[in-house]
Computed example of a mutant assay.
Amino acid sequence: MASVRSAWDAGADGVEVDVHMTRDGEVVVIHDADTGRTGDRRLVVKDSTYDELRAVDVGGGEAGDFAGERIPRLGEVIETLPAGKRLFVEVKCGGEIVQGLRRVIEGSGKEGQIAVICLAADVLELAAGAMPGVKMYWVLGSREDDDGEYAVYDDALIGGAAERGFDGLDVYHEALTAEYVEKAKRAGLEIYVWGVNELAAAERMLRIGVDGVTTDYPADVMRMPG
């Protein structure tokens, strides 16, 4: 929650969070499938109740700057969503979360401000079927070729996204070209990019016409001209 609030304080246009489902059906905001990396003890999210997870301190870390920070429900994050801003919700588990996710998003009354993103096309399809009023973006990973360069995405992914009725792609910036952006837009897709933590990369994304970037430094990126 501290991270989410800091983004709004910085004037960010949107926030991206990751979600898993607990044993008792709560949709919670956490990147990993367990709390081992970020918490003061290790619990597996899908095997734990919300109350059990809520007892884990996930804000101490090495510096202890956010000691006492707890894993929030997705609804708590949505409550902070200001008018005119967006929330991108990345599904990090399987299709079992879809109905719970639908209840939270539709119950918030802010579904027009929320998008669902996911690496798994089949899970995203389930979400699209359950929430026709929510935008869906297919997250694409990246890989390096034999020369250590990031391989450009296959054009077939554009067709696959369009056929499934997705609203766009969310891709790694290093693997994206201006030509690929043009092809995606001709197919009626929006293009978002992730991993943009250098201003030079953000400037390149702006030049080639992406719809938005995900960055750990929104205040710096938003100060860019244009």
Rank of each mutant, 00 (worst) to 15 (best):
residue 107 G to D: 15
residue 107 G to C: 14
residue 108 S to I: 06
residue 108 S to H: 05
residue 109 G to A: 14
residue 113 Q to E: 12
residue 113 Q to M: 10
residue 113 Q to I: 09
residue 114 I to D: 04
residue 117 I to G: 08
residue 118 C to S: 05
residue 120 A to S: 11
residue 120 A to P: 01
residue 121 A to W: 10
residue 123 V to Q: 02
residue 123 V to P: 08
residue 126 L to R: 07
residue 126 L to D: 11
residue 126 L to T: 09
residue 127 A to M: 00
residue 129 G to P: 04
residue 129 G to F: 04
residue 131 M to Q: 03
residue 132 P to R: 00
residue 132 P to E: 04
residue 133 G to V: 13
residue 134 V to W: 04
residue 136 M to E: 12
residue 136 M to Q: 15
residue 136 M to H: 15
residue 138 W to I: 05
residue 138 W to Q: 08
residue 140 L to F: 14
residue 140 L to W: 13
residue 140 L to K: 12
residue 141 G to V: 07
residue 141 G to E: 10
residue 144 E to A: 10
residue 144 E to T: 09
residue 145 D to C: 02
residue 145 D to Q: 01
residue 146 D to K: 09
residue 149 E to P: 10
residue 149 E to N: 15
residue 149 E to K: 15
residue 150 Y to M: 06
residue 151 A to H: 00
residue 151 A to F: 00
residue 152 V to E: 13
residue 153 Y to Q: 01
residue 155 D to L: 11
residue 157 L to Y: 13
residue 158 I to P: 00
residue 159 G to V: 02
residue 160 G to N: 03
residue 160 G to D: 06
residue 160 G to Y: 00
residue 163 E to P: 05
residue 165 G to T: 04
residue 166 F to A: 03
residue 166 F to W: 09
residue 166 F to M: 09
residue 166 F to N: 09
residue 167 D to H: 15
residue 169 L to I: 10
residue 170 D to I: 14
residue 171 V to H: 10
residue 173 H to S: 11
residue 173 H to L: 07
residue 174 E to N: 12
residue 174 E to H: 13
residue 174 E to T: 11
residue 175 A to I: 07
residue 175 A to N: 09
residue 175 A to W: 06
residue 176 L to Y: 03
residue 177 T to I: 09
residue 179 E to F: 00
residue 179 E to H: 02
residue 179 E to Q: 03
residue 179 E to R: 02
residue 180 Y to T: 07
residue 181 V to R: 03
residue 182 E to S: 08
residue 182 E to R: 03
residue 182 E to H: 05
